[in-house]
Write a protein that binds this DNA or RNA. Structure first.
Length: 268
DNA sequence: ATTGAGACCTGTCGGC
DNA sequence: TGCCGACAGGTCTCAA
């Protein structure tokens, strides 16, 4: 599923089902996802109460009464299902039985997901979080932050946006969408939006606003799986650009091995 | 230190 | 119908 908006939707749904409840039992139906589950994974979680559920970039963080944090990444195909009974489906890998009778099941066909336990006190030292960039919906994420993160990067702007050290939570869809809204070419060098004479370039201001707008509107769309009609350029190769008066045609190109969608006419 | 290529997995879809 | 390649919302690691 998951870029920032989808992970946020999952967080909200899990929060309703899990906050304040106790994990009675954890069933691992295999030994690994992307990596092996850590030693004693299930037993560290059992009997812990879930105090709060947070999100950082594309990661979910469940704060437990022990002080440990359960760290979860959905990878490419991870999802959660909440039900009362719990007959297993294909690719159900982790089952959380809660004290209130609910069963929360993690399903992930491609197994690019990740679960780990961060021991109490080690908060943001986990290597997945250590070098993560700014949280784009925080007030502190602004043109200065983005310009600084892009400084001296010779890589394409779109590729830079996918780098979680530059901004946390953008993925292949919303990187393309944000660039279209900002009217910026995905092929520009990232450093071309960086600071000049102590001030971020205008492009950095536009891109910062576009990132926030794209993510906010996707979150507002809420908890429903997205459809291609939700996007202005993503998966619209050959279609007419939706920008009023543009008249260009959306193109698909490859960057760093991944598809980028953009309008060559209005994105410079 | 950056950067690109390939690897990790399974499922789906379109073409022949 | 079946087979085959291309592609999919994400990281990681390795080599240049």
């Amino acid at each position: 599923m998951p870029e920032l908006p989808e992970v946020e939707a999952v967080r909200r749904r899990l929060e309703r089902a899990m906050r304040g409840t106790t994990i009675a039992r954890v069933l691992l139906r295999r030994a690994n996802l992307r990596r092996p589950f850590p030693e004693g994974f299930a037993s560290r979680l059992e009997r812990q109460t879930i105090r709060s559920l947070r999100r950082r970039g594309k990661y979910l963080l469940l704060d437990l009464s022990s002080g440990d944090v359960l760290l979860i990444h959905l990878g490419m195909s991870g999802s959660f299902r909440i039900d009362e009974d719990g007959s297993p489906d294909a690719h159900d890998h982790v089952v959380f039985q809660l004290s209130n009778g609910s069963v929360v099941t993690f399903n992930d066909p491609r197994r690019f997901g990740l679960m780990d336990v961060i021991e109490a006190g080690w908060g943001s030292e986990h290597r997945a979080l250590r070098s993560m960039g700014a949280e784009p919906l925080d007030a502190s994420f602004d043109a200065v932050t983005l310009a600084r993160a892009c400084a001296n990067r010779r890589t394409a702007l779109k590729v830079a946006l996918l780098d979680q050290r530059v901004v946390a939570g953008l993925g292949n869809i919303y990187a393309s969408e944000a660039l279209h809204r900002a009217g910026l070419s995905p092929r520009r060098r990232a450093s071309t939006i960086a600071t000049t004479g102590g001030r971020p370039r205008p492009a950095a201001f536009r891109l910062t606003s576009a990132i926030k707008a794209v993510l906010r509107s996707a979150i507002a769309r809420q908890e429903r799986p997205y459809r291609s009609g939700d996007f202005r350029v993503y998966d619209r190769d050959g279609e007419k650009c939706s920008r009023p008066g543009c008249g260009g045609t959306v193109r698909r190109i490859q960057q760093a091995g991944r598809s980028t969608f953009f309008c060559p006419k209005c994105q410079r």
